[in-house]
Write a protein that binds this DNA or RNA. Structure first.
Lengths: 209, 209
DNA sequence: TAGAGTCTACTGAACGATCGGTAAGTGCGA
DNA sequence: TCGCACTTACCGATCGTTCAGTAGACTCTA
């Protein structure tokens, strides 16, 4: 028997297992959403993974969409918080951009399942559309940093600005599809690699002779 | 009334509309799968988009999963065909890699909805898992090219090879999420931009003085 | 300290809606 | 008359959700 929060401790109403709190339910729900996709995850298999009944979930949240809303808010809060930090608001655009990109990698890794869910949205429901709007706003701010860095002259201007931003995000966002925390590469190394590849490219650096 | 294949031409059994053939059904199905997600797309709304009944779809395909299988096969065939071309098999690794990346962008744009569907798979069913296996095999071959280019010395070796490949694919695959054919940027320009950003990075090139 | 009542955290059965898919019938051009 | 390309009607299964009930820990009163 695998229990998420340790052994039975009594104190609850029913069976011999710790009662779930909302964060624990959310963790397991988001993991399932990422495994199967949100739509393909039924409340039934969610209950199975939690080791409870379907209806028990409704004690903690008001429904399936509520789980999604809570999860997306967590991911978006992490990203939005990043933009409020000092490193993102002061200094040269080039430095601010690097700060935000490093930070984005950090948030992405720290909140991996939540950001993964966010990045796979399709916008079917109102909850999803609102989350997508917040995500676009984040993208928009970073896009502004790219523009500034180009005007500063530190960033190449022979590639369209929008294309640049999108390729940049494509690279970073792809991390959720393959990065495994606890693996051989640390989050800091990952952020460093992203900055290196993004700014300097894959070609062997020409050493001054 | 919007009709995909022109105006009514008679000749069918029931209503006054051209009969669908399989490719036409597939096109509309894949578009719907991409709009809502495969699981979230019901045969009912698929029929609605086709302007027919649910059961009419079953005249053309054996079921929902069959539509998915046909669509994924089309995307994968495009990518696999690319690896068989001469430019992908002869020459320096660096040149072959650039050829394949350019080609990947081309296939991605030409078969945009189909590749989009492929890149969003979660592996819930056997059909999806087999498609993912073929996709991994494609990735594996390109990954080999990256390895060769590093050994040739043309590609930087201070970033982990797997990480390099994944960031590269992340950048390219992200194209399906934002590229709109018929927009201001042509597929050739897009491929060129990808190669530029990937190999030379975003930093302003230092002009020899 | 007994007993009544309250609260938390569920259980199990059932709901109407919708799912993918099937069966049988049919208008119409060849 | 044949058969292509559908049609309407319907199937059992599963969906997210609701509801009444309840075991056990806790609090309050006498």
């Amino acid at each position: 028997m695998t229990s998420a929060t340790g052994e039975r401790r009594s104190g609850n109403g029913r069976a011999g297992r710790d009662p779930y709190d909302l964060p624990a339910v959310l963790d397991i729900a988001v993991a399932a959403f990422n495994d199967f996709g949100y739509e393909a995850t039924s409340m039934g298999i969610l209950a199975e993974r939690l080791g409870t009944s379907k209806s028990a979930i409704y004690y903690h949240v008001s429904g399936k969409e509520d789980l999604l809303r809570l999860a997306l808010d967590r991911a978006l809060s992490g990203l939005e918080g990043l933009l409020a930090l000092e490193g993102a608001t002061t200094g040269h655009a080039d430095e601010r951009l690097r700060f935000v990109l490093r930070g984005a990698v950090r948030v992405l890794v720290e909140e991996l399942p939540y950001v993964t869910l966010l990045l796979r949205l399709r916008g079917n429901t109102e909850v999803e559309r609102q989350a997508l709007a917040r995500r676009r706003e984040f993208d928009h701010v970073v896009s502004g940093l790219v523009d500034e860095a180009r005007q500063e002259g530190t960033m190449r201007a022979d590639v369209d600005a929008r294309t640049t931003t999108r390729l940049l995000f494509g690279m970073i966002n792809s991390i959720v599809e393959w990065y495994k925390p606890g693996g051989p590469i640390t989050p800091d190394e990952l952020a460093e690699d992203v900055i290196t590849v993004a700014f300097d490219g894959l070609t062997t650096p020409s050493t001054p002779e």
